[in-house]
Design a protein around this nucleic acid. Sequence first.
DNA 1: CGATCCGTTGACGGTACTCAACTACCGTGG
DNA 2: CCACGGTAGTTGAGTACCGTCAACGGATCG
Lengths: 250, 250
Amino acid sequence: MPLALATRHSAHAAVVTPLPRVHTCQVCPGRHNVCAAVRSSELDRLTAMRTAQTVAPGMTFVDEGEPALHVFTVTSGVVKLFKLMSDGRRQIVGFLVAGDVFGFAPGEKYTVSAEAVSPVGVCRFPRRQLERAFTEFPGVERQLLDVITRELAAAQDQMLLLGRKTAHERLASFLLSLLRRQDNEDGSVDLPMTRTDIADYLGLTMETVSRVFTVLKGSGCIAATGSGTIHILDADALAELAEGAADDDA
Amino acid sequence: MPLALATRHSAHAAVVTPLPRVHTCQVCPGRHNVCAAVRSSELDRLTAMRTAQTVAPGMTFVDEGEPALHVFTVTSGVVKLFKLMSDGRRQIVGFLVAGDVFGFAPGEKYTVSAEAVSPVGVCRFPRRQLERAFTEFPGVERQLLDVITRELAAAQDQMLLLGRKTAHERLASFLLSLLRRQDNEDGSVDLPMTRTDIADYLGLTMETVSRVFTVLKGSGCIAATGSGTIHILDADALAELAEGAADDDA
DNA sequence: CGATCCGTTGACGGTACTCAACTACCGTGG
DNA sequence: CCACGGTAGTTGAGTACCGTCAACGGATCG
């Protein structure tokens, strides 16, 4: 979900510093380049209203139910979005990386909370200002529509995962989506989040996630390579697992 | 998710008939009136490009993976949106009623399929034309952004339901959301969809849904009132159930 | 009247949860 | 230097919720 509002390389720019320039979005390779749709006049305007900010791991910086005064773009690090139930049950509804956007709520209040997984850089845009900019620069609104539409499609995929897939299928799907998103040459995949986070994203418990990891390692699909990274050895086997390949070896 | 593109009362208007006039949206009482944001010049333009269409129950009229050439608005009846896995498992990602919009995909293809639950009226807008209209009438794009944002928030709620709630909590949440959406004076709720549909929406089996219905009836929360309708007798008890009230009566 | 679909109910079993013990890995500080 | 506590992760034993399979009742329809 790239947006010109946030570019990976302008992460720590000061408030008044103009964005470097329009450049190809490096976050989602292969996707259409939405950055190209933004003219420099728009960039100047957007740059003027944003506030750069850093967030330490474990810090919650958006709370569900609070007034939705700002829209955020992630410039570095990983953010988790989640919802809580009164008894503490938690559902993580998404992990955001550089280029992603959140906080654009349908009503007056945020519908999810946001917490930094790793050290995070974000840009904060006052929502009212941003909305006013829509009428002046329709390209910005168009981008936001694209981003939200993509997020909706991802949410629908996740509903299929949560409603209908087994634990093995869920973890396989999750690892593949990370592989696709990170797109490292070798099959390495960063896992900055804890087992508990993964569990809360996949609708499982930490123990089940751990057990499934063990099975996947044992079957040679993946290999652990130090803390916080794994290697995907057999993406095809993982893809079959993700889509319910009936392993009728009996 | 109301949109001026579709108004409940213009449901069966012919292709060339102009929409009656801008009027208060009756689909989502209490919500802000997005219809008011559309000027009559836009309405004329939108009316000119739409095609009215009716769909019989059980007919699939949008297929996941097919080129996304049209955007649809529902004018009457109930539509289910769903995703399928290769082995037949199904997840319904939403039920749409009059005023709802779908088919606005992030890429070139639809990401979900659509099937009529009851006899359905829809309006079809060529996607390219609609997108071109965005630049001319920004209000339309703004509405669509509102609609999609609302759908995303609903999808996140559903992720919490699918990932973390028990069968009882799921059905209670579902019935309450229907009650809120239909907002009938008495506590009556229409259930035009089958038990299997409800199960596929809640990530359960038909049998479990049936069993939980029986329990809810037995506990006096709801009462069956003929086929396809129930009465909600105790919305508060249902609300407690929906949010995991630990019924420690022991 | 048989066929089919939808829904209900029962018996049984499996996947994933709960509870618990244990290891590894930190950084802290005695 | 190593004991110490805290967090993250792994593994095991037992269990519960919900899925599977199956039988049955009622409604609709040709």
